[in-house]
Design a protein around this nucleic acid. Structure first.
Length: 278
DNA sequence: ACTGTTACCTGATTGC
DNA sequence: TGCAATCAGGTAACAG
């Protein structure tokens, strides 16, 4: 569920309570999420030296060269509880961290597509889940040249290529739809035809979409919340996602356009304006 | 190597 | 109202 802006939002909320603190207790209430949970005892008693994000992963770096690697999957979130708060944990809270200040951070994930690993910090770059990720879209390495090089020769659609975390890291179904709308590119366009001016437009559109979403605290679909319990509000800024049949803001209105179209691409819902996205 | 499909899991919504 | 079918923000494993 959470895509890059939501993960970034969770990370920022979590950092406030974890950075510089000692993790005095880590406890799992089941043996696995998507994969078996690691033995968390090596992390206990260690100080958090910093938090970072790579793609949709949160990296909690601990003193002594260990990193907690968190992925929220489709339904994962972090629920913070202040010291002395009512001890009833939320439903589907599978793992909890407690700091020396008494704050608790619970990993809540009904669908359990999320994951938690404990790895050596020096092995981050070579970890199987991180090694093949493409460039961070908000960093300097994500250029039109890099994007068109990554798309060259690919016979799949631009939408599928952008959902591939090896092309660019952190996009999911919502932000791919939104970025393609902003770029004026059809989700069905062949990936390899996105080069030159189209690649420049797409890089810009992806950057702007993500930056705007982060500024809004992410999108709150259903009851998704930030770590501090607040709702993000970027869902109100969606131009196409979830807006099937509505007129798109770039179209002059009827006649001419049946509104925003929705269709399935590789099992996922796509939303796009059939007139302004080519 | 590349591409599309399936599977993992629960809960909310939709349709009969 | 009840129940079944469908759909969800992700990604790894698989088949072709």
């Amino acid at each position: 569920m959470p895509e890059l802006p939501e993960v970034e939002t969770v990370l920022r909320g979590l950092a406030v309570r974890l950075e510089g603190r000692v993790l005095v207790r880590l406890a799992a209430s089941r043996p696995d999420l998507r994969w078996p949970l690691p033995d968390l005892s090596p992390a206990e008693g260690r100080r958090v030296v910093g938090l970072a994000r790579r793609a949709k992963y949160i990296l909690v770096r601990l003193e002594g060269g260990l990193t907690l690697l968190i992925h929220l999957g489709m339904s994962g979130r972090i629920v913070l509880a202040p010291p002395g708060a009512n001890a009833t944990p939320p439903a589907h809270e599978h793992v909890v961290f407690e700091t020396d200040e008494g704050w608790r951070a619970g990993f809540v994930d009904p669908r359990r597509f999320g994951s938690l690993d404990l790895i050596r910090t020096e092995a981050e770059a070579t970890h199987p889940r991180l090694a093949r990720l493409g460039p961070e879209p908000l960093e300097d390495g994500f250029t039109p040249e890099a994007l068109s090089a990554a798309l060259a020769g690919r016979r799949t659609t631009i939408k599928a290529a952008l959902l591939d975390q090896g092309t660019v890291a952190g996009l999911g179904n919502i932000y791919v739809c939104e970025a393609l709308f902003r770029a004026g590119l059809s989700p069905r366009r062949s990936a390899h035809t996105v080069a030159g001016a189209r690649a420049r437009r797409l890089v810009q559109a992806i950057r702007e979409t993500l930056a705007d979403a982060i500024a809004a605290g992410g999108s709150s679909l259903r009851d998704w919340r930030q770590a501090n319990g607040e709702l993000g509000y970027f869902q109100h800024a969606w131009k196409v996602y979830g807006r099937a049949g509505e007129p798109c803001e770039r179209c002059p209105g009827p006649p001419g356009c049946g509104g925003i179209a929705t269709y399935r691409q590789s099992g996922r819902s796509t939303f796009a304006c059939p007139l302004t996205q080519r």
